[in-house]
Structure formats: structure tokens, C-alpha cells
């Protein structure tokens, strides 16, 4: 299996703060890889470093074998990487249609992908002409994901899709992401460990700006010691009760 994305020992600064102190990742093509860790471990910054919004000061990032480190964000994105930021960063003043149109890289993108998008998120078709700001939280999240699907992105960076959503909505997002993985490789940041464990094939754990652990998700679920060490006791308890719903207490910082 070839790696679609390889991140090698990147160091990223925000202002004068050293946020990432050596993060290395390899994302195999066609997989869902989860990026785990406590709040402030550097998960979001890792995604932003990959897409180029916080360019790393050193290290190497390769997408499909070619080096993308040092390119501007728009150049990186147009190689075929979609970014779904946290907090559902859709354009509130734009209609659903405009939110999708803006992501087009060529004129016919939206027409080509509309079956896929509206198959996954039928709501968006219903509210096509409505301003994004008037959608519900779940619909906004769907729109944010849909926006990344308009061009044929081969890699999706998705940041906390479940954040602040009701359980029923989380289920539908999980469904959607699972179907999506047939079309694109996904690098997923998720605080909801149960959701991550259902979806992901592989995982990376970040701690204090470093990648400290990696492996198959199936192994991690068994390893309660590792979970509570890096992700907090809350996680471990949640894993212990598999019949509990997909919604879980989000990991508490320092818990």
C-alpha cells in the first residue's frame, strides 16, 4: 500500500510559540487515519501545516510523492487536498449553492459531483438557495464536508466533524464519512474516540506537539493503558463500555 501523504519531522511555530516539535505521519492511500491526542496536542496545527495555513519551519511534507513543503496554501489545496476545518467554517453569508460553487476548480465540478454530494447529504439539496448561516449545526457540518467534495480531492483533512453535534447527527456523519472513504483518503482529527475507533483503520497519537504512537486502530482499542496515558481516563472508560452510544464524553484536558 502506498502512502498518499508523508509528513516527516515537521516543526511549526505560531507566532513565537513552538507548537509542533517533530510530527511524522504516513497516510496510506484509501484508508481512514485518525489523529488522536488531548486538547492542545497539536492535531489542528498538524492539519493546518499540511494544507499550508501554518507552514512548518522545517521538515518535509510529501503529497503523492512530491514535496509540497513551502508551497502556498492555495497551491497545495489545488493539488487535490480538501480541508474541512473545525467549528464548521462555512461561509455564512453565502447560500448553500455559493458555498459549493466557490470550491469549484473548473466550471463543471459541481455538476459532476452533485450525485455523490446530494446522495450523501440530501438536506443540502433542499436548502440549496438558503444562506449557510441559517442552516442547523449538523447541516453546516455537512455543507463543510460537501464543500471539500466538490473538486476531486484525493485527500481530505477533516477536523473534529462531530464537535457540538447531537448524537443522531453524529451517526449520520459517521455514515457519510464511511461512504466517502471509497472516494478519497481521509485524515481525521477527532476527540470523540468512539467515533474515531469505528471509522479509522489506523491511528496516530500526538502528545505535546510530537507524534508518539501509531498503529492499527483495532490494536489501540485493546490497549487501555495506552489510551488512558495519552488520551485520558475518560477515553479508557468509554472503551470499556462498548454498548454505550457513539457519543461520548469528549476527552477532558488533563483528565
Amino acid at each position: 500500500m502506498t502512502n498518499i501523504l508523508e509528513v516527516d519531522a515537521i516543526h511549526t511555530f505560531i507566532g513565537q510559540f513552538h507548537i509542533l516539535e517533530g510530527v511524522s505521519l504516513a497516510v496510506p492511500a484509501g484508508s481512514i487515519t485518525a489523529l488522536l491526542g488531548r486538547n492542545g496536542a497539536g492535531k489542528t496545527t498538524t492539519l493546518r501545516s499540511i494544507i499550508g495555513l501554518n507552514a512548518p519551519r522545517s521538515g518535509r511534507i510529501a503529497f503523492e510523492g512530491s514535496d509540497i513543503h513551502g508551497k502556498t496554501a492555495y497551491a497545495i489545496a489545488s493539488l487535490g487536498i480538501g480541508y474541512v476545518p473545525e467549528y464548521r467554517a462555512i461561509f455564512r453569508a453565502l447560500t448553500v449553492e455559493e458555498n459549493l460553487r466557490i470550491a469549484e476548480r473548473s466550471k463543471k465540478d459541481l455538476a459532476r459531483r452533485s450525485d455523490l454530494i446530494f446522495g450523501l447529504f440530501p438536506d443540502l439539496k433542499r436548502f440549496y438557495k438558503l444562506p449557510g448561516g441559517q442552516l442547523s449545526g449538523g447541516q453546516q457540518q455537512m455543507l463543510a464536508i460537501a464543500r471539500a467534495l466538490v473538486p476531486e480531492n484525493r485527500l481530505l483533512l477533516i477536523d473534529e466533524p462531530s464537535e457540538g453535534l447531537a448524537p443522531i447527527l453524529i451517526e449520520s456523519i459517521v455514515d457519510a464519512l464511511r461512504q466517502l472513504s471509497a472516494h478519497a483518503t481521509i485524515l481525521l482529527v477527532e476527540q470523540n474516540f468512539r467515533m474515531a475507533s469505528i471509522l479509522a483503520d489506523r491511528y496516530y497519537i500526538l502528545d505535546d506537539g510530537q507524534s508518539v504512537h501509531a498503529g492499527q486502530m483495532a490494536d489501540l482499542v485493546q490497549n487501555r493503558e495506552l489510551i488512558s496515558r495519552y488520551l485520558g481516563a475518560g477515553y479508557a472508560a468509554a472503551v470499556a463500555a462498548p454498548e454505550s452510544p457513539a457519543v461520548m464524553p469528549t476527552a477532558q484536558q488533563g483528565a
Binding site: 495555513l53 455559493e98 466557490i102 470550491a103 476548480r105
Partner: peptide, 15 residues
């Protein structure tokens, strides 16, 4: 109009 709200996100879309 999108950039007025969040120009960073516009850039991340490849623009």
C-alpha cells in the same frame, strides 16, 4: 464575499 468572512478558508479551497 466569502473572503470577507474567512479569507484563510478561501485559500484552503485552492483559490
Amino acid at each position: 464575499r466569502a473572503g470577507v468572512q474567512d479569507s484563510e478558508m478561501v485559500q484552503a479551497l485552492g483559490i
